[in-house]
Design a binder for these strands. Structure first.
Lengths: 112, 112
DNA sequence: AACTAACATCGTAATAATACGATATAACGA
DNA sequence: TCGTTATATCGTATTATTACGATGTTAGTT
């Protein structure tokens, strides 16, 4: 793409955008939802669950991990992933910090 | 990109991903934050505020509008944008529906 | 050691997103 | 009407993302 002009924006704006990008694919949402239910899973679970190739799942997992949403622990031969609890809550707070800033703007909410 | 296999995922997963994509650029976060403060703005406000070209701002505004996050009203010669209140709250609920599903997973939060 | 199972990484083709100049379009005022 | 102001849209070069086969890597098994 054209290069995003990161320097024009605040640290918070860039951070929120990076986090949102991690959520911005249905496969990654599906992975997160699976983990919210199952607490833990390995790559091959998700290959069966989602029907994407192993390499593709691995790539999505890495992106979620890079964003800090997941952590991975070696479990014998396989890699066990789970949601990173502290970061998850921080992300929640960051988004809600934005969501909650909306203000009532008129009797019928006619802002503009 | 390789084509995203939308049909593999649920409606909610695809919707969340589309919304997250709308948030996944610092310029769009900046636009939303500006609107949360100012309630209303026009294209040229943002050109001055953000330092991106007029065409670029217009493109970002369209994406935010397509995602349902903004609404626009004609105001004489210019276009007045504001946050779409109902959709904004629905988006908030959708994300929190996900954020809040995290469960305590152990004495030290060692999930995996 | 040889084999297997489970992943990660590489390479790459296909496709999407970003930025912006150039060019429409539309409303208002003189 | 003509010019001005404010946006939208088009075209396009550049860069990023997605998916997956092929190949590497590592831990356990026989």
């Amino acid at each position: 793409m054209g290069v995003t002009k990161t320097d024009l924006f605040t640290k918070e704006q860039n951070e929120l955008a990076i986090l949102a990008k991690a959520f911005a694919h249905p496969a990654r949402i599906a992975i997160l939802q699976h983990l919210l239910k199952a607490n833990t899973c390995i790559n091959s679970d998700l290959v069966n669950e989602l029907g994407l190739a192993q390499a593709t799942i691995s790539q999505h997992l890495r992106e979620l991990k890079n964003a800090g949403l997941l952590q991975g622990n070696i479990e014998g031969v396989s890699m066990s992933y789970c949601i990173h609890p502290e970061n998850w809550n921080r992300v929640k707070d960051l988004f809600n910090g934005m969501f909650d800033k909306i203000q009532h703007c008129g009797p019928k909410d006619e802002c503009c």
